[in-house]
């Protein structure tokens, strides 16, 4: 098990702090965003790093970006301290094709699985989640989710084939998880056109910084990983989106900033203060074990 930093691949072109970096669906383009209010897009095919675009338009630090699936036309969503969610579309240059203004900083954006259509969710410090649906035209609804701010959102993955499961429709449900300053993770789904809360995970003692939702390949377990100011990472598992069983991974030595599942859902990347990234994998006894670190010490590969 190894994680190899590509030493020749380091980008350092933003003037302000970098807050997010995401690869597109094919792993060919890299979008980054920063406190310098810009979004940069690089072509990173074959080890190159060519700046393709420098998108200006936000009036504050850009917190997060998210690529849509190519089916939706490779849209890029961004959110910023300037209270806005913006969807950018490329045609020669990048154009703002949609924007929505929350009442406070927008901390997180995420595209729903493309099988559901073009749906974007945004999480704001005003405590609300915005759901923005494109169906000929854009329409938005907001849900009051977390009393003093929502920091992160993640959609339930879409699973066409639930291999070995008796609930074929289960994986096709449109569902969303949000984590906020109220220490809670809430699970939302749409029932007769209304967004309703169907589950809640109460496993942290401080602000939740990031959540990520995966469905493992093979045994199709629904897992939500969450990390928090309380220096913990928790993995919660559910069979019905309503009841969640949580396992705390470890107490880290600093607050934990992001969690990210690998694409097959069996490995979790955890990023703690000063960008110490560690990879975690569940062993046969259901314990999460570290399997790799970077930016820590060179000797422990």
């Amino acid at each position: 098990m190894k994680m190899v930093p590509m030493n020749d691949f380091i980008l350092n072109e933003h003037e302000g702090e970098v807050h997010d970096a995401e690869l597109d669906y094919y792993g060919q383009r890299l979008a980054t965003c920063s406190s310098d209010k810009t979004i940069k897009i690089y072509n990173i095919q074959n080890g190159t790093k060519t700046l393709l675009a420098d998108i200006k338009g936000h009036l504050g630090p850009v917190w997060q970006i998210c690529w849509s699936h190519p089916v939706s036309g490779h849209l890029l969503a961004s959110c910023s301290y300037d209270k806005r969610v913006v969807v950018w579309k490329e045609s020669n240059d990048w154009f703002n094709i949609f924007e929505f203004t929350h009442e406070s900083s927008v901390n997180s954006v995420a595209w729903a699985p493309h099988q559901h259509g073009i749906i974007l969710a945004s999480a704001s410090s005003d405590g609300s989640i915005g759901i923005h649906v494109f169906n000929k035209e854009w329409s938005s609804v907001t849900i009051n989710a977390h009393s003093n701010g929502c920091n992160s959102i993640a959609w339930a993955p879409f699973k066409e084939q639930l291999f070995g499961s008796n609930q074929p429709e289960f994986g096709k449900k449109l569902a969303l998880a949000s984590g906020g300053c109220d220490k809670l993770i809430k699970i939302w789904t749409i029932q007769s056109d209304q967004w309703v809360q169907i589950g809640e995970i109460n496993c942290h003692t401080d602000w939740i910084r990031a959540i990520d939702w995966t469905c493992t390949i093979g045994d199709n377990r629904q897992l939500i990983a969450s990390c928090s100011e309380d220096k913990t990472v928790v993995v919660s598992h559910s069979d019905d989106y309503a009841k969640w069983n949580s396992t705390q991974m470890q107490i880290f030595d600093s607050r934990v900033w992001t969690v990210s599942w690998s694409k097959i859902g069996n490995v979790l990347a955890v990023s703690t203060e000063r960008n110490k990234v560690s990879l975690w994998k569940e062993n046969r006894n259901g314990q999460w074990m570290i399997c790799s670190k970077i930016n820590d010490n060179k000797e422990d590969n």
């Binding site: 970096a21 901390n107 992001t258 990210s260 990347a269 203060e273």
Partner: peptide
């Protein structure tokens, strides 16, 4: 509000 660092697959 600032994410200090992160890693995503």
């Amino acid at each position: 509000l600032k994410r200090k660092c992160g890693a995503s697959f």
